[in-house]
Design a protein around this nucleic acid. Structure first.
Length: 418
DNA sequence: TCTGGGGTCCTTACCCTG
DNA sequence: TCTGCAGGGTAAGGACCC
């Protein structure tokens, strides 16, 4: 489908011609790149256009992105690569290059910011835009959406889809339903007619498990949920989820577009290339992850009060442990020692581990906590050393300085027998 | 079929305090 | 001193999203 072919409004029959132009009151845009990682790769490999292409990889990896030709064969994101390749044996597989995607994403977000300052990125490849202050300058919501779409193609060489609606939630559903390379307006007075026939899975917060629960209640469409007494929903799904779904089912979503939300946690986790049971290798990986988390926490100007550890075993069962510190910290060594102590407290003996992760939670600005950090003395010197290392890495690359234990093998699993 | 990595939010249980 | 209760903090696990 080529660009500019898709001009739709909520297809509700009596709307007459596509996109009747009634975008009054629709001040929220949800812009979503089409098959983002895959289309970014196609920019430099035009010979792959029209072919099934999968971005992903690793022996235990999953699909991160797939072209629509691959999707037609049943491939979708988050699917294990082994299964994807059974469905699409001739697909071209490309290893992900996150630096490249981050760069394109930054350009796209800058483009959005030239349209309106009210841009809320949701991930690398999508964002909400509040254009209520832009309409007078650039025209109707539909005209603004088309401007964005043509600029994204011209400047970045990829396509995107845009949902236009009075609320974030409806705009997001709209963009998903006009993919790829489309635009869809849902006028304010047709929100319920658009929403109610859709399956419950379109609601934010309904995944596989919740959908099963709803099915057991005989609820298949959003309209079914809207017409179910809220008390019944709360009993079945819990207070928060029940209320949340009922509200969404009536098209109510008062959330505004908020450009900057501070992070609540920063973490890193890694799946070993094969399951391991050697505690020394696991400690080395914990140090590596703590180092990464520490660098990011300091770089963002936070301190963390709670450190959590995640361990996934070979049978895929996962557990987590956390510890709240008396004094918040941004010191790598403290992240590591806490994570290691949490791991030791599990009392595992030669159990095969698939993944470990370290996460800093309860983040708050380091500024207000600075005095406490100094008073928390013993790590003060260490912290200064780590800040110096951060500066070296910023200048010479992330591998310029490594913790001593990691120098010999930056990836502990590398030493495993093949 | 065999499951990444980055997050957020909710629920439940437990402990402590008043 | 004991008991019951409410509320807050913490911990663990799970569901979900991209």
């Amino acid at each position: 489908m080529s660009r500019n072919q898709v001009r739709r409004s909520a297809g509700l029959g009596k709307s007459g011609p596509l996109n009747s132009g009634d975008d009054t009151g629709c001040t929220i845009l949800h812009v979503d790149m089409d098959a983002f990682f895959a289309l970014v790769e196609l920019r430099t490999r035009p010979e792959l256009h029209g072919k099934p292409v999968i971005v992903g990889g690793g022996s235990r990896g999953v699909v991160l992105s797939a072209t629509y030709e691959a999707r037609a064969l049943g491939v979708h994101s988050a699917m294990p690569m082994s299964r994807a390749l059974r469905l699409a044996p001739h697909a071209v597989v490309i290893a992900p290059d996150h630096r490249k995607y981050t760069e394109v994403s930054r350009n796209v977000m800058a483009l959005f910011n030239s349209i309106t300052p009210l841009v809320e990125p949701l991930s690398l490849d999508e964002a909400f835009l509040d254009i209520s202050g832009t309409i007078r300058r650039l025209g109707s919501p539909l005209a603004i959406a088309e401007l964005i779409r043509s600029r994204v193609v011209d400047e970045q060489g990829i396509t995107c889809s845009v949902g236009i609606a009075p609320t974030k939630f409806i705009a997001k559903i709209a963009s998903a339903r006009c993919k790829p390379d489309g635009v869809l307006v849902v006028p304010a007075d047709r929100v319920l007619a658009f929403l109610h026939p859709l399956p419950v899975s379109v609601l934010w917060g309904v995944g596989e498990r919740t959908e099963e629960q709803l099915t057991r209640l005989g609820l298949y469409t959003v309209g079914d949920i809207a017409n179910m007494p809220i008390a019944t929903l709360r009993r079945a799904l819990g207070q928060a989820t029940g209320t949340h779904l009922h509200t969404l089912a009536w098209g109510i979503d008062p959330r505004s577009v908020t450009p900057h939300e501070p992070e609540k946690s920063i973490g890193a986790e890694e799946t070993f290339s094969q399951d391991i049971d050697d505690p020394e290798l696991i400690y080395a990986k914990l140090l590596h992850l703590a180092d990464e988390v520490g660098t990011r926490v300091r770089g963002a100007g936070y301190v963390s009060r709670t450190i959590s550890l995640k361990v996934r075993f070979s049978d895929f069962t996962t557990l987590s442990r956390s510890r709240t510190l008396t004094t918040p910290t941004d010191v790598t060594q403290e992240f590591y020692e806490t994570a290691r102590a949490l791991y030791d407290s599990l009392g595992l003996e030669r159990v095969r581990v698939r993944l470990v992760g370290v996460r800093a939670e309860g983040l708050r600005a380091a500024e207000g906590a600075a005095q406490q950090l100094i008073l928390g003395a013993p790590d003060h010197g260490r912290r200064e050393a780590e800040v110096a290392v951060d500066a070296l890495r910023a200048r010479f690359g992330s591998d310029a300085v490594l913790p001593g234990r990691l120098v010999e093998r930056a990836d502990p699993t590398e030493s495993l027998p093949k």
